[in-house]
Design a protein around this nucleic acid. Structure first.
Length: 581
DNA sequence: GCCGTTTTCGGCCCGACTGTTTTCAGTCG
């Protein structure tokens, strides 16, 4: 089993956790965590690079020592240093540090004094009031520990971006109505458009921070106040979502926006540039000595470290700072670039809007084209169409399409990839289609090798033009099938099969890192909503956000082209079939 | 453990809030 970058990152993170618990040098701990980040966000497989005998490229935060350790992990699957640490520090303690309010120091302290290693033992110790007896801890800390253990039992997952947006919208309006409030922006991972968010960070520019804190804490949906100060308040809403509100003056708004948008790693990276230039960046501004030299806008703040403004979706410290320094930031795609949708269902299969309703909804979005892609027969749960019914449906789509001058309706199908890699439609029907979207819908539990060869076989089929939702994952529901994605991406580039960025907010498949990895090997993409209702055409925005996080530009995305451009860029249908058309 | 436009040694981003203790350490983002 090949070692993935994520495996290496997990080992480094575990080393960091154990080093921290053993009281090791905090900067050394940080070095391991930084290395883990660096490895995890690197788009090529380090194992592949090493096994093929190439040099490991220079990665940020990885020096000679850690490079050697990556080699050791790839070659042996293990790290001797980790084994050594595991024999010295009880590994159970790592889980305790994940409890909010408990870090390595306190976990170690409680372990040393009471021998507590597990959550259960911790709960017992807290209930019998043994925690408060430890010098440096107290009654409040003990109660907080119990509260956190209780909360854990009804564990809150990261929420999907769409749910965070729905929750935040009324709260933003509520805060905007407060006297003295000038601007309200949801920052954090929400503004970076991550597929899920752990909490919602709201930045308020105002002249009366204390009032804003009081009014926010009194928001009717607040279930619990976790912290409340003069500038910052943290609450949990009834929905379980955590919300932070931070208030600053208008003159600091740009600096605060940079700080509060993150990511943390991006901020650290630009602050380090600041340190080299003898300036200090914080949420109030940029300072040279005591003198404030910027802070009102984000552009001003970036300019002090000689960087152009960087799109929030790129702020992950995954190379955007180097790109910005060298003037090579990508011109990432925008919603307005999208000219049509290539994946949509209707009431004939598992959709909830009629063909005409879907077409009219696409027209109202000013699309130039819309592909109707009903399921094929194997997907029985979605009322997939047998060849005969599919042929009838294609005729209906063609006829309906002729009624509309503003848009071209493409006859498509979402063709099931069967377990042997063949396509779920006979050639004579494949030939009638304008667009062929292929996807896996069952047998998720094949081995990685079986699943990979199944999908590769489908991609080698000359009729396969688009691979839809390539991993099959659903956010917070299932992780997707095991498949060799780098091999899929290479095949996509080689055969000219476009990879779908599925815009369903629960799919967003491919994800950001995979989109970028596929782009780097030369693959092309489509962004499609997989709509089952007219209202879902709006999901295009989510797909575009994910694509932006994956550094995709207009030229990478085929449905940003005119109909003519799209059709000439999609993989060509087999010549033999075309010749007798 | 990494890193270098004052450096190969001596730094390593920066501030808010909490709880504890009485001036600050720990945690978090």
């Amino acid at each position: 089993m090949a070692i993935t970058n994520n495996d290496i990152a997990a080992i480094f993170n575990r080393v960091a956790d154990l080093l921290e618990l053993s009281g090791g040098n905090e900067f050394r701990v940080r070095a391991y965590r930084g290395a883990a980040m660096s490895v995890a966000s690197f788009s090529q497989s380090l194992a592949d690079i090493i096994i093929s005998g190439q040099e490991i490229p220079k990665l940020a935060g990885i020096g000679k020592d850690l490079e050697g350790k990556i080699g050791e992990i790839v070659k042996t699957g293990k790290l001797a240093q980790l084994k050594e640490l595991e024999s010295q520090v009880p590994t159970d303690l790592i889980e305790l540090t994940h409890l909010p309010g408990l870090g390595a120091k306190r976990v170690r302290l409680i372990f040393d004094k009471l021998g507590v290693k597990t959550i259960d033992a911790l709960e017992k110790a807290a209930r019998s009031e043994k925690i408060r007896a430890i010098r440096g801890l107290g009654e409040k800390t003990e109660k907080n520990i119990l509260a956190e253990i209780e909360k854990r039992k009804g564990l809150q997952q990261n929420v999907k971006l769409i749910d965070a947006i729905k929750t935040a919208a009324p709260l933003v309006e509520y805060l905007k109505a407060v006297d003295g409030v000038m601007q309200v922006t949801v920052a954090g991972s929400y503004r970076r458009r991550k597929e899920t968010v752990r909490d919602v960070d709201i930045l308020v520019a105002c002249s009366n921070a204390k009032t804003v804190m009081d009014v926010f804490a009194a928001y009717p949906q607040v279930k619990q106040i976790l912290a409340k100060g003069l500038k910052k308040t943290t609450v949990v809403l009834e929905s379980g979502l955590q919300v932070d509100v931070r208030a600053v003056s208008e003159s600091s708004y740009g600096a605060a926006l940079v700080y509060f948008t993150g990511s943390k790693e991006h901020n650290v990276a630009i602050r380090k540039i600041g340190v080299r230039k003898k300036i200090k960046l914080n949420e109030y501004g940029v300072f040279r000595g005591k003198r404030r030299i910027a802070g009102k806008t984000e552009e001003d703040v970036y300019a002090t470290v000689d960087l152009p403004w960087i799109e929030p979706e790129l702020r992950e410290d995954r190379g955007e700072i180097d790109a910005a320094t060298s003037g090579k930031l990508p011109h990432i795609i925008e919603l307005d670039d999208i000219q049509g949708d290539l994946h949509a269902h209707t009431t004939t299969t598992d959709g909830r809007s009629s063909l005409e309703e879907m077409i009219e909804a696409a027209i109202s979005r000013r699309y130039k084209y819309l592909a109707i892609t009903e399921h094929t027969q194997h997907v029985t749960v979605a009322n997939g169409l047998e060849p005969k019914a599919m042929r009838k449906r294609l005729a209906e789509i063609e006829k309906a399409g002729q009624k509309y001058k503003e848009i071209t309706v493409l006859k498509g199908a979402e063709i099931d990839i069967l377990s042997d890699g063949s396509l779920d439609l006979p050639e004579e029907i494949l030939e009638e289609l304008d667009i062929r979207v292929c996807a896996v819908h069952y047998k998720f539990n094949l081995t990685k090798e079986e699943q990979t060869s199944r999908i590769l076989k489908a991609m080698e089929n000359p009729w396969c033009q688009i691979l839809a939702h390539p991993t099959g994952r659903q956010i917070n529901i299932r992780s997707g099938y095991e498949v060799d994605l780098p091999a899929i991406f290479r095949a996509a580039a080689q055969h000219g099969v476009a990879l779908e960025c599925n815009a369903q907010p629960a799919r967003l498949d491919l994800n950001d890192i995979n989109l970028r990895a596929a782009k780097e090997v030369g693959a092309k993409f489509v962004i499609s909503t997989d709509s089952h209702h007219t209202s879902e055409l709006e999901f295009m925005q989510y797909g575009v956000w994910q694509a932006r996080r994956g550094w995709l530009e207009k030229r990478d995305v085929l449905n940003s082209q005119s109909l003519k451009g799209l059709l000439s860029s999609l993989r060509k249908a087999p010549q033999a079939a075309l010749s007798h058309k």
